[in-house]
Design a protein around this nucleic acid. Structure first.
Lengths: 133, 133
DNA sequence: ATGGGTGCAAATAATTTGCAGGTAA
DNA sequence: TTACCTGCAAATTATTTGCACCCAT
């Protein structure tokens, strides 16, 4: 089938860094961390590994409000979504197997298969709700 | 308090273009449309107006998967969602008061108010169901 | 040995900012 | 008139790609 990936120090370092965190990490972020911990890896390589992992379905990716792409190992946590505060950008996790199931069923009923979804929820958190607007 | 905004042809054109669509529009998108319809406006100006509208809370913004920022007038929310076919780009609407309710409750429970959400579902429609990924 | 992996530097693409000149109030 | 508004061009930021070299297999 597909040629097995070659085992390299860089690839291992990147996957280890990803595995070491439950949350989404950006490429720049991971790169900086790897640099700091001595396991120097080129930024390009970080991007390439993340991309390949995403293609392979091993990681999920999301776009942050600041325009960066963040990645997280699929198994790192049950699939869930986030609510982002429009004031302070704080992120709170929301678990929702119900949501997944609902989306799956609705799309299937419309005749679609191989469903993929992105849910973005924006709100105002308690702390930010006190001021403005 | 705040100085009232100056009424300009460009600003009016941008807001009109936004008002003319229920869906999220990118700056580039709006700019191209304005160009095409004769009401020439600089790309910079489009960005500036969208930013100001977002700051004022008049529009909501989201990041698309391709990295662009899309904007939509707050009041324009036609509350339904779409499933987009990754093959032919066909769009099918799906109705979901359940979904809205679920999201609302989940976010509220997390301490958020003034919830706004975007759900993007991508799948493969019956006609295109064959090669992919 | 050899082809995939690496990384520097240059290329892209979306968005922001400097600045000179236009225009609503 | 007086700021604010515009828009061209240059600057920024995140990400991708060209290419010569290196290393796991």
């Amino acid at each position: 089938m597909t040629a097995p990936l070659r085992a390299t120090r860089q690839g291992a370092a990147i996957e280890a860094a990803l595995a070491g965190s439950d949350d989404f990490r950006t490429a720049q972020d991971l790169h900086a961390q790897l640099r700091a911990t001595g396991g120097s890896v080129g930024l390009t390589t970080v991007y390439r590994h993340l991309q390949r992992l995403a293609d392979a379905g091993a990681v999920d990716s999301v776009r942050t409000i600041t325009g960066e792409t963040a990645y997280r190992l699929c198994g790192a946590r049950a699939h869930h979504h986030h609510v982002v505060c429009r004031g302070c950008r704080r992120v709170v996790d929301i678990d929702g197997p119900d949501l997944e199931r609902w989306l799956e069923r609705a799309a299937t009923k419309a005749g679609f298969t191989d469903i993929e979804h992105t849910v973005e929820i924006v709100g105002t958190c308690r702390d930010c709700g006190r001021v403005n607007r």
